[in-house]
Simulated scan of single mutants.
Amino acid sequence: MEKLLARLAQQLDTIDEASLMSLWSKYATTTSRFEPTKRWEEATLIFSLIQAKRWKNQLFNFHWSRQSQGQEGLDPQLPNLAPDFALETPQEPAPAQRCRVLEFRPLKQDSESGENDEN
């Protein structure tokens, strides 16, 4: 799985951002009009890839600029471009979360047939 993702990342990185951005509007529009089809799913993934390339370049440029200015770390006055990630270690299992089972009951009995919907 990781090899496949690395290959996809390498291929995406070879594409020029300007070429991808020429397709942004088309895929943003398709993605905004949900339909439960394979076509919509693929368009949404394409849109996500375009956004990923754009975000990667913005993040790269931000860090490159900070590094070339000799600044270390992030300035607290600047917006955080990268989200804070909490990495899970494989040795620590995720805490068990309790769940509730919701009971579905009919709102009212069908007055015409005299039967209720619990069957």
Rank of each mutant, 00 (worst) to 15 (best):
residue 61 N to T: 01
residue 27 Y to F: 08
residue 69 Q to A: 04
residue 26 K to P: 01
residue 7 R to Y: 11
residue 64 W to F: 10
residue 101 V to W: 15
residue 14 T to C: 04
residue 64 W to Q: 04
residue 118 E to I: 13
residue 104 F to W: 15
residue 10 Q to L: 13
residue 5 L to A: 08
residue 104 F to S: 03
residue 86 A to W: 14
residue 54 R to L: 08
residue 65 S to V: 03
residue 68 S to W: 06
residue 17 E to G: 04
residue 115 E to L: 10
residue 15 I to Q: 02
residue 20 L to A: 10
residue 107 L to T: 10
residue 48 S to T: 03
residue 68 S to D: 09
residue 7 R to Q: 11
residue 73 G to C: 10
residue 24 W to L: 12
residue 48 S to D: 12
residue 25 S to L: 11
residue 70 G to N: 01
residue 97 Q to H: 08
residue 68 S to K: 09
residue 45 L to Q: 01
residue 62 F to C: 00
residue 41 E to V: 03
residue 83 P to T: 00
residue 2 E to Q: 07
residue 89 T to K: 10
residue 103 E to N: 02
residue 84 D to V: 15
residue 31 T to P: 00
residue 100 R to S: 14
residue 107 L to Y: 13
residue 105 R to Q: 11
residue 22 S to P: 04
residue 42 E to L: 13
residue 95 P to E: 14
residue 100 R to W: 04
residue 58 Q to A: 05
residue 11 Q to I: 15
residue 89 T to M: 13
residue 93 P to A: 12
residue 8 L to G: 05
residue 88 E to K: 15
residue 58 Q to T: 03
residue 73 G to W: 13
residue 31 T to N: 00
residue 46 I to R: 03
residue 71 Q to D: 05
residue 2 E to P: 04
residue 38 K to S: 04
residue 54 R to F: 10
residue 17 E to R: 06
residue 97 Q to L: 09
residue 25 S to M: 10
residue 35 E to P: 02
residue 31 T to R: 01
residue 97 Q to F: 06
residue 50 I to T: 04
residue 75 D to W: 01
residue 103 E to P: 00
residue 75 D to M: 01
residue 65 S to K: 02
residue 6 A to W: 14
residue 104 F to N: 04
residue 41 E to A: 09
residue 91 Q to H: 11
residue 102 L to V: 08
residue 101 V to L: 13
residue 23 L to E: 03
residue 50 I to M: 02
residue 28 A to R: 08
residue 69 Q to E: 07
residue 83 P to Y: 09
residue 79 P to T: 06
residue 104 F to L: 15
residue 114 G to F: 05
residue 88 E to G: 05
residue 114 G to V: 05
residue 91 Q to D: 14
residue 59 L to P: 03
residue 96 A to K: 15
residue 40 W to P: 00
residue 48 S to W: 02
residue 82 A to H: 13
residue 39 R to F: 01
residue 91 Q to E: 15
residue 27 Y to Q: 00
residue 13 D to W: 05
residue 80 N to Q: 14
residue 93 P to M: 10
residue 17 E to P: 00
residue 99 C to L: 12
residue 64 W to V: 04
residue 44 T to N: 11
residue 103 E to I: 09
residue 41 E to Y: 11
residue 38 K to G: 01
residue 94 A to V: 13
residue 38 K to H: 06
residue 40 W to R: 00
residue 6 A to L: 12
residue 46 I to Q: 05
residue 53 K to W: 06
residue 32 S to P: 02
residue 103 E to V: 15
residue 116 N to H: 14
residue 33 R to A: 14
residue 59 L to T: 12
residue 13 D to I: 07
residue 78 L to V: 04
residue 76 P to D: 06
residue 110 D to N: 14
residue 99 C to W: 15
residue 42 E to I: 13
residue 35 E to W: 01
residue 103 E to T: 10
residue 19 S to R: 14
residue 29 T to Q: 11
residue 101 V to Q: 07
residue 41 E to W: 14
residue 93 P to T: 11
residue 115 E to V: 06
residue 88 E to M: 08
residue 76 P to T: 06
residue 21 M to H: 11
residue 106 P to A: 12
residue 65 S to R: 01
residue 50 I to G: 02
residue 73 G to R: 10
residue 24 W to P: 00
residue 99 C to G: 07
residue 45 L to Y: 04
